[in-house]
C-alpha cells in the first residue's frame, strides 16, 4: 500500500510521484491543465501541460506561457508517473488526467459531461482504480433535458419576441456554452445570431477547430438604427444590467445554465426565461460515470459533494471528498 497518487495541497491537487499539480489555484512549477475555464487555468505556473485542441484556448486566456501540448491518449512521463489526457466532453480540448504509477491508475475527471456536444470531443470512459469526479450538480433534482429540445425552445422564444418587437438576449458563458448553443441553433435555423464582443475570441477558436456554428454577426458592427426585434443575441452574464443593453430598445432576457433547472434561480435574477443547458454531468450521469470507470474509490470535488459521497457510501463504494477552489465559472 503506497501513498495516494493525488493529494489535496494548499496549491491544489498534487501528484507526488510525478511532482505536478492538476489545475492548481496557486503558482507551482509544473501544472497539468484540464481545460481553459478561469477556475481551472490560472496564470503563474512554471510549465503547462495541456491538450493540443485546448492550446488555442489557453493562449487566448493566459497568453504566451511555457506550454507542452499533448494529443489525446498519448502518454508522457512526469517524474515516476505515466500521464495521459483523455476527452472529458466539457468544452473544446477539455481533458481527464490519467495517472499511472506502478500499475495503479488514478483519473482526475476535471469538469465533464456525457450529453452529446457537437463542438467538442465526446467523454471517454477511462477505467481506473480511483476516480476524482466533479459534483457541480450533485443532487437528483438536476436532470438535463435533450439539448436539441432546448435549442428549439430558444428559437420559439425568439419568434415570440419578434411578435412583440423585442430582441431575445441569451446570457451564457463565453467559452464552451456559447459555441455549443451556436452549433445546436445552427443545426435548426439559418438566421444570423448576434454576438456581444466578449464572444468573439472563443467563437473564432471553435470555428478554426472546425466547429459548425450558426452564422454570426457582431453587435458592435451593427448600424446605429439596426432593429434587433426578433433577433437572437448572445452575451456573457456580466452584460446583464450593463449600459451595453441600452441599444436594444426592447428586449427579453434569458439565461442558459444548468442552474436554470430551478425556478427560484431564474426568478431571483429576474430573467424572463431560463434555458436548462449545462456542460457538467447531471445527477444520473454522475452516478453512471462513477460506475462505468470501475473505480474502487471515488473522490468528489467542487459542488454538492456531501450528497454524492453519502449515496456512493450507501451503495458500498469507498467515497470521499476534496475541498477544492473550483466552481467559479458557472456559479
Amino acid at each position: 500500500m503506497h501513498a495516494d497518487l493525488v493529494q489535496l495541497r494548499p496549491e491544489g491537487l498534487y501528484c507526488p510521484a510525478g511532482d505536478f499539480h492538476i489545475d492548481p489555484w496557486r503558482p507551482v512549477p509544473r501544472a497539468v491543465i484540464t481545460h481553459g475555464h478561469s477556475d481551472h487555468a490560472r496564470s503563474g505556473m512554471g510549465t503547462y501541460h495541456v491538450t493540443e485542441s485546448g492550446l488555442p484556448i489557453l493562449l487566448w486566456r493566459l497568453g504566451q506561457q511555457d506550454y507542452h501540448a499533448h494529443p489525446y491518449g498519448e502518454a508522457f512521463t512526469l517524474g515516476a508517473a505515466r500521464v495521459s489526457l483523455h476527452p472529458a466532453g466539457h468544452v473544446l480540448g477539455s481533458a481527464q488526467v490519467r495517472i499511472e504509477v506502478d500499475g495503479e491508475v488514478w483519473v482526475a475527471g476535471g469538469d465533464y459531461k456525457r450529453q452529446p456536444d457537437p463542438t467538442c470531443e465526446p467523454f471517454e470512459v477511462v477505467p481506473c482504480d480511483v476516480f476524482i469526479t466533479e459534483a457541480t450538480f450533485g443532487l437528483p433534482i438536476y436532470r438535463w433535458p435533450d439539448t436539441a429540445e432546448v435549442a428549439r425552445d430558444i428559437l420559439e422564444w425568439r419568434d415570440e419576441c419578434a411578435a412583440g418587437g423585442e430582441a431575445a438576449i441569451v446570457y451564457c458563458y463565453a467559452l464552451g456554452k456559447a459555441q455549443r448553443l451556436l452549433a445546436e441553433i445552427g443545426a435548426l435555423d439559418d438566421q444570423p445570431v448576434w454576438l456581444h464582443g466578449a464572444m468573439d475570441p472563443g467563437v473564432d477558436i471553435y470555428r478554426a477547430a472546425g466547429a459548425q456554428l450558426a452564422p454570426t454577426r457582431r453587435v458592435a458592427d451593427a448600424a446605429k438604427d439596426e432593429s434587433f426585434a426578433g433577433r437572437l443575441v448572445i452575451a456573457p452574464p456580466s452584460a446583464a444590467g450593463s449600459p451595453w443593453l441600452r441599444r436594444f430598445r426592447r428586449a427579453q432576457q434569458g439565461f442558459a445554465s444548468g442552474w436554470m433547472r430551478i425556478r427560484g434561480n431564474r426568478r431571483r435574477r429576474n430573467y424572463d426565461r431560463g434555458f436548462v443547458i449545462s456542460d457538467h454531468a447531471d445527477w444520473p450521469d454522475l452516478l453512471r460515470t462513477v460506475q462505468e470507470t470501475g473505480a474502487r474509490r471515488i473522490i468528489a470535488t467542487h459542488g454538492d459533494t456531501d450528497a454524492l459521497v453519502r449515496v456512493l457510501r450507501d451503495m458500498g463504494v469507498d467515497a470521499g471528498a476534496f475541498r477544492t477552489e473550483f466552481g467559479g465559472e458557472e456559479t
Binding site: 443532487l139 437528483p140 433534482i141 430551478i262 425556478r263 427560484g264 450528497a307
Partner: peptide
Amino acid sequence: ASYDQVGD
C-alpha cells in the same frame, strides 16, 4: 436535501 436546495 433536494427540497432544501429548491425551496418549493
